[in-house]
Nucleic acid binder design. Structure first.
Lengths: 349, 349
DNA sequence: TTTTAATATGCAATCGATTGTTTAAAATTA
DNA sequence: TAATTTTAAACAATCGATTGCATATTAAAA
């Protein structure tokens, strides 16, 4: 019972003995159409189960009403939430979302972005992969290419700083600073840092916050307490084992990269019989759902992910409206929130 | 520096003094084109940064190369994973995904589906919302409408049984049966069931598995141990309080609806000082990430979500190939796996 | 009653790519 | 050399909707 052929405005037009243009005008409620014939057209469209062909419409109008989103992983809480936020806004505006995941792979990211450019999307929203080194030459050519095509580009969270685009980020440095300050308040003296790949700005900023907090509180920066590239659960665990093996091990660990990394820390601590938070304080980053479920629950930083997604989407529509007053570059910074849980609370209230 | 106008095959054609048709043939590698001119065309296309306008191409070819996906929530682990799986397959085939979330709301689901039909997507993949009661009259009209438009419809996990479509499901009854059998093996005698809205087939099947297992093991079905509509964390907790308040409370609870519900059970147990698994066994459903992080970790059922997504996507392409041998209805059932963790293990090995 | 303005609708081009049909040129065969 | 086949490229229609312009009709103003 498959109707191979779909109803078009021509079908409606010929059935009623009018022209397609009138049908179009009636359907779009534009220009002059007699009230009676308009009603008739609308009724007939309904009867014939007419659905506008968006391809044709958008081709004519020169827009695709489609927004492309590229994230490292869609099944990661933070990104899934951002996407949910974006979707909520764009859906209401009648825009569609094309979702791609880079899987933290540079080549897949490039390919995804190119596909979206090919699709003539109106806007590309991206959080770059860990392999997208913004310092390296030509490494961001695919993003520059987006701009060259006159497509709006919005970066969020993991952004390539030097590219002049719209950006929505968290104030990572501030959040990091607050987390460390809180730990110092709790009496921790040797706070270690698990840092992420420094080619990503977010990880540099988080490190800066850490350094700044130590400095402000007159505490020394101890090199052996800073572990590079510990941004997965496994690497976090590995880093923790290394730290605990030191002659003077830390009494707190800030897993600045993610909650997954913090989870690695917690698991090693548990396995080694080290008490959290008494002997070791732990703080993660992102406020993944599981952080309040672990035992003890993990102190972390909430990035208002759904809200971030909404902000990104709204930014697009807002910029679209004042397309004449072109803002080449604009950054919105959202202040994240420190969520204090058991893993860093060793003082009685 | 925004090039308002993008390069088209006409630009390439006029620059080289050939016709657009030749350019098209060269680009698509079809028909006759002189090897030399083809090279020239390809080179010029590259130089002018040409990108095919997919809208025009698809309009002409009568396909959209786009697949729509509707799920209750994209930021829920199970669905995010399924989508990741779908994306992995469709991306390789050059298809795009339009993602919509119904937010468990019937009206939003209808609206989403209609939008996708409007978009002339080639296929719609859906897991229906909890409000989509397949028994009620006309409640699935929006899905029937998809079929009427000749659009392929694939349902997964939460399916409307009576609709003749392709389906990919889990063998819920079997999984449920195994879970209960395992609990009986562990010596639990009074096993309660937290059931989900019975208008959804998956929840009916899970209940059936529960009943079947009790029967097979010669255990009575006790009505007061079956709690209706306990499918969120809060409702799960509420149900648990009710169960624990019975004169003869259960010694195990199967949260057949979700791991979130199981989490509610666990939290109430902890708060009440009831020991898990010694005094109370708990089993969830879905193998959410957090189930191995809680203390104690939660026994649950893995649905192979990513794999399910891949299966759905592959099913589409497969059916597309033998479009002549139209399979109106076809169901693929994936056998889920019981993941035994601490929350139900009270016997020494 | 004539002029002007407002309304209704038709005509035809356009968006960019694809493709069946023709025509022209080159290569092959008889 | 003429007839036939193969290759190359142009021509023109098509996909479905939109829209500027032209024409016709009606209503309002002079």
């Amino acid at each position: 019972m498959k109707p191979k052929k779909r109803t078009t405005i021509y079908d409606i037009a010929s059935k009623l003995g009018v022209t397609p243009s009138s049908v179009s005008r009636a359907l779009n409620n534009t220009g002059y159409v007699n009230e009676t014939t308009k009603k008739l057209i609308l009724k007939t469209a309904e009867e014939l189960n007419y659905k506008r062909n968006i391809l044709a419409s958008n081709l004519r109008k020169g827009e695709s009403k489609t927004i492309g989103v590229v994230v490292p992983r869609i099944n990661q809480n933070f990104f899934a939430n951002v996407i949910a936020g974006i979707e909520e806004v764009t859906y209401k505006k009648g825009y569609n979302l094309i979702i791609c995941q880079s899987n933290e792979d540079y080549d897949k990211e490039v390919q995804s972005v190119n596909t979206l450019v090919n699709q003539h999307v109106d806007c590309i929203i991206i959080s770059i992969s860990v392999e997208t080194n913004s310092d390296e030459t030509n490494n961001c050519r695919h993003l520059q290419n987006v701009l060259d095509h006159g497509i709006q580009l919005i970066q969020f969270d993991r952004v390539a700083d030097e590219l002049e685009t719209l950006k929505v980020i968290n104030d990572n440095e501030q959040a990091s600073y607050e987390a460390i300050s809180h730990m110092i308040d709790q009496g921790y003296k040797r706070i270690a840092l698990l840092e992420g790949p420094q080619n990503l700005a977010i990880f540099r900023q988080r490190k800066n916050g850490y350094l700044l907090a130590l400095e402000k509180h007159g505490m020394p920066v101890i090199d052996e307490l800073v572990i590079e590239n510990a941004w997965t659960k496994e690497l976090g665990a590995e880093g923790t084992r290394k730290l605990l093996g030191l002659t003077e091990p830390p009494d707190a660990i800030f897993a600045s990269t993610s909650d997954f990394s913090a989870l690695g820390v917690l698991e090693v601590a548990m396995a080694t019989g080290i008490q959290v938070p008494r002997q070791l304080g732990i703080c993660g980053y992102s406020n993944e759902d599981f952080t309040e479920l672990t035992y003890p629950s993990i102190t972390t930083i909430d990035q208002y992910s759904v809200n971030m997604g909404k902000t990104v989407a709204n930014l697009y529509f807002q910029e679209r409206e004042n397309a004449d007053t072109v803002a080449v570059s604009k950054t919105i910074s959202i202040k994240p929130k420190l969520i204090i849980r058991s893993s860093t609370q060793r003082l009685k209230e």
